[in-house]
Design a protein around this nucleic acid. Sequence first.
DNA 1: GGCAATATATTTAGCTTGTATCTAAATTAT
DNA 2: ATAATTTAGATACAAGCTAAATATATTGCC
Lengths: 399, 399
Amino acid sequence: MKPTAAAATPQLLRRVNAQSVLGFIRNTESATGTELMNHTGLTRASVIAVCEDLIRRGWIRELDARGEDQPAGPRKGRPARRFEFNAKAGFVLGIDIGAATTTAAVADLRGTVVGRSSEGFRAADIPAAERIDVVDRACRGALAAAGTGPGSVLAVGAGIAAPVDRDGKVLVTQHFWSLFDVGLRAALQDLHGWTVLLENDANLAALGERWRGSGAGVDDLVVLLAGERLGAGVMESGRLLHGRGGAAGEMGYLDLVAGVGSSDGIASLARQWSAAAGGPAAGGPASARRVFEDAAAGDPAALAILDRIADRMARVIATVASFINPEQVVLGGAVADSAQALLPGITARLPRLTATPPRVTVSPLGDSIVTVGAVRHALDYVEANALELELSLSAGPRL
Amino acid sequence: MKPTAAAATPQLLRRVNAQSVLGFIRNTESATGTELMNHTGLTRASVIAVCEDLIRRGWIRELDARGEDQPAGPRKGRPARRFEFNAKAGFVLGIDIGAATTTAAVADLRGTVVGRSSEGFRAADIPAAERIDVVDRACRGALAAAGTGPGSVLAVGAGIAAPVDRDGKVLVTQHFWSLFDVGLRAALQDLHGWTVLLENDANLAALGERWRGSGAGVDDLVVLLAGERLGAGVMESGRLLHGRGGAAGEMGYLDLVAGVGSSDGIASLARQWSAAAGGPAAGGPASARRVFEDAAAGDPAALAILDRIADRMARVIATVASFINPEQVVLGGAVADSAQALLPGITARLPRLTATPPRVTVSPLGDSIVTVGAVRHALDYVEANALELELSLSAGPRL
DNA sequence: GGCAATATATTTAGCTTGTATCTAAATTAT
DNA sequence: ATAATTTAGATACAAGCTAAATATATTGCC
C-alpha cells in the first residue's frame, strides 16, 4: 500500500523558505540579508542558511563586498552581504510551431531573450521526421545566437495550433498536428534530454500577454489569437483553462452556434480578417492593407467590411464575457496590427451585448506573442521545480 | 515593511501532516494508527502525536479498544488503537435563497443532512430587514430540527441568484439582490457570529452536483441551473470559475449573441421552459406537464415545442463546450424533472455543433441542488481551515 | 586618530517536529 | 506454556527554525 500523500518532513521547510527567498531575489536586482529578512519573514540565521544553500546549488551568487553600483541603502554599519539571482545559471527555450514557419527563442532565467531563430517548413505536409528536424534546427540556431548550447537548457515551452490537455497530451482530432506533435515532445527529449512542455498556442499567447503584454497583472484574461486560425487562450484567477481535453477556447465550430450561417461565422471571419490584413492564409498582400487604408480614407465599402468584422468580434467577445467574465480581452496574433482600427467599433457594441463588458486591447507583442508565452511557460516550470533541478555548474554559459 | 510571505516554521509541518491525517480519517469509518501510517507516509510516532493533537482539538475521537463492530483487520497481534472522525464536533449550514422561498439545511461534518427548514417570503419586494429575518427563521428552524443550536455552526454557505466574486462580494448590477445580500452576510455574522460564505446559486449547484449528483469525480463540469432564471456554474480542474466580478456563467444577455432574435433567445427560453414545466415564473401548472405528456403521447405541436427547446439548449451547451470544454454538462434546477425528455434531442444535435461534445445528464438532486452545494461550500471552508477553527468542546451537540 | 553609533554577521542555546530504532505489551496460533 | 505477530511506547538523533548574545566592519563625530 503506497502512501497517498508524502509526509511533511523538516526538509520541506527549507524547500518552502528557499522558494520564498529565491522568488524574491529573482524579481530584484540584488538583495542583502536584511532585505530578505524583511520580505520573507525569516530570521537572519535562516536567511543566511538558505542563501548558502542556494549558492551551493548555483541559483544565486554572492556579490563582492561593496562593489561598484550598490544601491543607496543605509550608509552606516557593517556592510551587508549582497546576493543576486544567477540569471545565467541556465536557459529556457520558447518555440512557436506554426503551419508555415517555426520560431525558437532562448531566454535566461529572468526571461531576457538572448537568442532567436526562425526556420520555414518546405511544405505543409512534410513527414514528421522532417518537421522535427526543422524545429530542432531553429532551436540550435537560437542557442548558437545566444552563445550557449543544448546542455544549458532547463526547460522548453512549445506552442502548437491544436488542443493540448493539462498533461501536455495532444487531443486527437481532425488536425493532422496530433500525429506529429506527440513525436516532437519525445524527439526533443531523446535528442537533448530536454523537458518539453507542449501547450496550445493561444494559451501561451495568454501567458505572454499577461507577462509582457497589455494584460500585465490581470488575473482574468482572454487572448483571442487570430492568425492562421482563431483561438482563445483563457486565464481565470491567474490560471490557464484547459478543460477536459485541452480544447477550451477552441472556437472552430462556433459559427454554427453564434452565427446565422457558416459563411458568415467565426471561422470564416478569421479567414476574412487574415486575408484583409495580409496574413498567410489567403488573399495575399494584394487585398491587404488596402481595406484598412481605404477605411481610414473613408471608403464606404471598406468601412462596411470593418464594421462587419467588428460586429462579429464583438459577439465573440460578448459570448466569452458571459461565460468567463474576464476583466480584459486582448486581440493578438498576425492580425494585431490591423486590430486597432476595429477597437472603437467593438467597444461601442459591447455594452448592448453583455452585462459585463471587458476592457478590450490590442496586443503589443506582435508575432512574438506565442514565443514570449512559451518562454514564460518554460520559466514557470523552472521556477516551480527549481530546487529539484540540477544545474550543471560551470563558469559562464556552457556549450 | 511587512513580510510578503509568512516564514515556514516547524509548526507548519504539524499542520500539513495533521491535515493529511484528518483528510484521510474523515473519509473512512475509523482508522488504526497503522492504517494512518500507510496512507499518510508518516511514522507511527508522528501519527500518534498528530492524533493526540487532533483529539485535544476535538476533531477526532479514540474508540474503546476492541469495541463491537471492528472491521476485519489482522487477527493476531496487540490490538490497535482506533480513531474516528468526530462528525458531530460541529455543523454547517447550507442556505438556498430564492426569490419566493428560502431553504436552510444543517449538516454534520461528514455532510449528512440532519435538519432542514423552508420559509416563504411574504412578497418579492419586502425590505431587507424582513428578508434577513425570514432567512434567519429558516436557519433556526433547521438547527432546531437537527437538535442543535447556533453555537455549533462552524460555517454557513449561502447561494443567491446574483453574481458573487471570489471574495464573496456581490456584483452591483441591475439585480435588486445586491443591496440586501451584502446585508445578509453581515447580519448573520452579527447575529450569531457565523462565518457566512456567499456564492452564486449556479456555482453552488455545480459544487453539489460534483459532490452528490451525477457529476461525481468530474473535474471539468458545467451545471446549467434553470429555474427562476438560467445560470451556469462552471468548474474547471475541480475549481469554480468566477471571473473578474463573479459573473462567469451569467447568460442573461446571451440571446443577443447566440440567438437570431431576442424573442427566441436564451432568456426567453428559460421562461418558456419554466412555464412549460410549471415553474414559478409564468404560465402556471395549467399549461404545465401537459406539453410533456402530450409530447410523450406523440402530439406534433408539443413535440415541436420540445424540439425547439432542445435546439436552444444544444446551442448553449455547444457554446460552453467551445469555451470551456467540460467533460460533462448537468441540467438542474426546477426544470430537472422535465429535462429527461429533452436529453435525446440535445445529445443528437451536439456533434454537429461542437468538436468536443460533453456528456449531458440530468441532475438527480431535484430542488435541493443548491442547498447541497451550499453545504459542500461550507464544508470546504471548514476542512481547509480546520486547524484554525476552535471547536467549543462539549458532550454531545450544543444548544 | 580614536571612539561611539550603527548595521550586519556569527555563534550558541533551545524548541518543534520529524525519522529511525529498540523494547514492551497484548493477542492469536501452535 | 510458548512462539509468532502486531502494535504501543520510549529513546536517540537530525533538520530546521527562533531568539538572544556576541563579534565585526563601517560611518561620523570629536
